[in-house]
C-alpha cells in the first residue's frame, strides 16, 4: 500500500466496472430464465438445499421470516378484479442476481462481499461480521442471514442427516450473511479442470444445481463472454446488454418481439440474470 504504487497505477485504480470496457475475461457467469417454461414446481429450490447445505429452519422460524431459501419461487396473480385467475398464475424463481454493480458490495463495512473476476458477487463468510447492511441495500431481498446457529440446532442436521452435507460447501454459523453463489464450488472445479487442459470451460460443462434439476429446463447458465455459450446467444438474441439500464426492447414504441428483461434494471445494479417474459396465448 505504498503511496508510490497508488500514484503510479492511479488510472487502474480509477477504472469503472462494467462500463469502461468488456467487463470480464475469460469468464462472466450469467443466467437466463425462461418464465414461459418455468412451472413453479420448486425442484430448483430443493436442489439448492441439497447442494448448498441450506438449513431447514422449521415452522416457527419460517413464520418469523427467517427462511434460508437461496432460490425462492414467487407466485404472482393478475391484478385485476376478475373472480377467477383464468389466465393462471405467474411463477418467478428469484435468487441473487449477481449484479455487476451490486448495491450490496459497496456498503459492507468489512468488505465481506466483493465482485469477483468472473463477474460474481461473492460472499466471504469468514469475513462477515453480520451488520446486514448488504441485505438492507439489496433491492431483491435475496440475501439470507443466519439468525441462529443452525449447525448446532437440534433438528437441522441431526445425526445421520449431517452426513448429507456437501463437503465442497461451508456450513455457515450464526451471524453470517449468505446467498446464492451460482454454485461457485462447481464453477471452481470446472475452471480447474479446464485450466489443467489449457482451455476455458465449455458451455454445458458446468451446471448450477437449480439448472440441473429444473424439469422444464427453464434455467440456462453459462459464460456470457463465450460466444459459443447458450446464455450468450440468448442474451444476444434478446438484445439485452449487461451495462445498460434500458434495453432495445423497452425503447421500441408499441412493444417489441423480444422477451428478455432484467428486474429493476432502472436501479442500475446491472443484474446478471435475464428473465424471458412469460407468454400467454392470445387466441383464448
Amino acid at each position: 500500500m505504498s503511496v508510490n504504487n497508488l500514484l503510479e497505477n492511479w488510472s487502474q485504480f480509477r477504472h469503472f466496472h462494467p462500463v469502461d470496457d468488456k467487463p470480464h475475461d475469460p469468464y462472466k457467469w450469467a443466467m437466463s430464465i425462461d418464465l414461459d417454461a418455468c412451472t413453479g414446481c420448486n425442484a430448483c429450490s430443493v436442489a439448492c438445499y441439497a447442494e448448498n447445505n441450506l438449513p431447514v429452519v422449521g415452522k416457527e422460524k419460517y413464520a418469523h421470516g427467517q427462511a434460508m431459501h437461496w432460490i425462492r419461487i414467487e407466485r404472482y396473480w393478475d391484478e385485476d378484479d376478475r373472480e377467477f385467475p383464468d389466465q393462471g398464475a405467474q411463477f418467478l424463481p428469484m435468487m441473487c442476481q449477481q449484479c455487476e454493480a451490486a448495491p450490496c458490495e459497496t456498503v459492507c463495512p468489512v468488505a465481506a462481499t466483493n465482485h469477483t473476476a468472473d463477474g460474481l458477487n461473492s460472499q466471504v463468510y469468514n469475513r462477515c461480521i453480520g451488520s446486514r447492511y448488504c441485505s438492507a441495500n439489496c433491492p431483491y431481498k435475496v440475501r439470507y442471514f443466519n439468525w441462529y446457529d443452525y449447525p448446532s440446532d437440534d433438528n437441522v442436521w441431526p445425526a445421520e442427516m449431517n452426513q448429507q452435507l456437501n463437503p465442497d460447501v461451508t456450513v455457515r454459523g450464526k451471524g453470517v450473511m449468505e446467498k446464492c453463489t451460482f454454485c461457485v464450488q462447481r464453477l471452481h472445479a470446472a475452471k480447474g479442470t479446464a485450466r489443467s487442459e489449457g482451455r476455458i470451460v465449455r458451455d454445458g460443462e458446468v451446471q448450477t444445481a437449480c439448472q440441473q434439476a429444473c424439469p422444464a429446463s427453464a434455467i440456462s447458465f453459462g459464460n456470457l463472454v463465450d460466444p459459443e455459450s447458450r446464455v450468450h446467444k440468448q442474451w444476444q438474441a434478446q438484445q439485452v446488454a449487461l451495462d445498460k439500464d434500458v434495453q432495445t426492447k423497452d425503447k421500441e414504441e408499441g412493444g417489441s418481439e423480444l422477451r428478455g428483461y432484467r428486474i429493476f434494471e432502472e436501479l442500475r445494479p446491472y443484474p446478471s440474470v435475464m428473465y424471458l417474459e412469460r407468454v400467454r396465448e392470445s387466441a383464448v
Binding site: 500500500m1 504504487n5 459497496t106 446491472y270
Partner: peptide, 22 residues
Amino acid sequence: FFLISGAQANFYAQMKGGKPIV
C-alpha cells in the same frame, strides 16, 4: 487520504462492482 486510498489499492484489492477501486 493516503491511508485509505493506499489500503484500497493494496495487494488484496477489493473490487466493488460499478465503482473504481479507489
